[in-house]
Simulated scan of single mutants.
Amino acid sequence: MEKRINRSPGEKESLHAVYKVPSGDGPYVRAKHAQLVQKDPEAAIVLFWKAINAGDRVDSALKDMAVVMKQLDRTEEAIEAIMSFRGLCSRNAQESLDNVLIDLYKKCGKVDEQIDLLRRKLRLIYHGEAFNGKPTKTARSHGKKFQVSIKQETSRILGNLGWAYMQKTNYMAAEVVYRKAQMIDPDANKACNLGFCLIKQARYEEARSVLEEVVEAKLPGSEDIRSRNRAEELLLDLESRQPPSLLSNIVCLDLEDEFVHGLEDLESKWGPLRPKRLPIFEEISNFKNQLAC
């Protein structure tokens, strides 16, 4: 039998302030209490299910339940729950559910599903349908709210997409994506990944140029010691490599046609505000021409 805890108004107010537990006494509030105050994730999941079945703050209940399931390594179950019940959620909740799904796919190694979802999110951005048509959205991290622009979100998604292609060892596709991300919103971490992709293609001088921008603190995020250390490690790795042979320069690496066509078919917009074709699409076409065998 579910145990109800009666608390004074002052105690409830204190819980809300300290643990961010919402007010009320429905199953969703009790689930958050179990999750944040009692530190009982299994009980929280049961109560989140009750909240979903009762129609109590379903948007938040489904997302929060999936996050707790992920923490308990019940990733497959969390994916199934989102796919089965997201139809009960509002339109405004779909984007955050997609973000949770991406993390779940990443954790359980579902790279193809991750790539498909990231591409779909990019299409929404280029059609002006992300953020409900607004140029920014409010996000939350570690309990703090901040504004995210379409530009930042596009670069973030591209960074995730590039990483997914790296997991499939498709370094050509990853390179194209990282170059596009750097054109939009450059940072040191993505520069390191781009440098790594170029090294894997034996394009050492290009990789050196990209990585030196991190070491010389020319990019946002270069002050992050992890990015600087990684760039320095990759540059040391370059020193031990032989110059690429002529043969390696003419090897035709397979850049997925579906990937290229998928990007080229996107609406040529910069969110709802930039109608001109993005330069990266021209770059992708150039890559295809250069790789023609």
Rank of each mutant, 00 (worst) to 15 (best):
P22G: 13
P22E: 15
S23C: 09
S23L: 10
G24S: 10
D25N: 13
D25P: 07
D25Y: 02
G26T: 08
Y28F: 11
V29N: 05
V29D: 04
R30C: 08
R30G: 04
A31L: 04
A31P: 05
A31Y: 01
H33I: 10
A34T: 08
Q35W: 07
Q35V: 08
V37A: 09
V37G: 11
K39I: 12
P41N: 01
P41F: 03
E42N: 10
E42T: 15
A44F: 00
A44M: 05
L47I: 09
K50G: 12
A51F: 02
I52P: 01
N53T: 15
G55L: 12
D56S: 11
D56T: 07
R57E: 13
D59W: 02
D59H: 02
D59Y: 05
D59N: 02
S60A: 10
S60C: 05
L62R: 00
L62G: 02
D64N: 06
M65V: 06
M65K: 05
A66G: 00
A66V: 01
A66R: 06
V68T: 09
M69E: 10
K70W: 03
Q71E: 15
L72F: 09
D73Y: 07
R74E: 11
R74L: 09
E76M: 11
E76K: 10
E77R: 02
A78F: 01
A78Y: 07
A81D: 10
A81V: 09
M83A: 14
M83P: 09
M83I: 11
S84P: 13
S84H: 15
S84T: 15
F85Y: 11
R86Q: 11
R86T: 08
L88A: 11
L88P: 08
C89L: 06
C89M: 04
S90P: 09
S90R: 10
N92M: 12
A93I: 04
A93R: 00
A93K: 00
Q94S: 07
D98P: 02
D98E: 04
N99G: 10
V100T: 05
L101Y: 05
L101R: 00
I102Y: 03
I102K: 03
D103Y: 07
D103H: 01
L104Q: 06
Y105P: 08
K106P: 14
K106Y: 14
G109L: 07
K110Q: 14
K110Y: 14
V111L: 09
D112S: 15
D112V: 13
Q114L: 09
L117W: 06
R120P: 13
R120Y: 13
R120I: 12
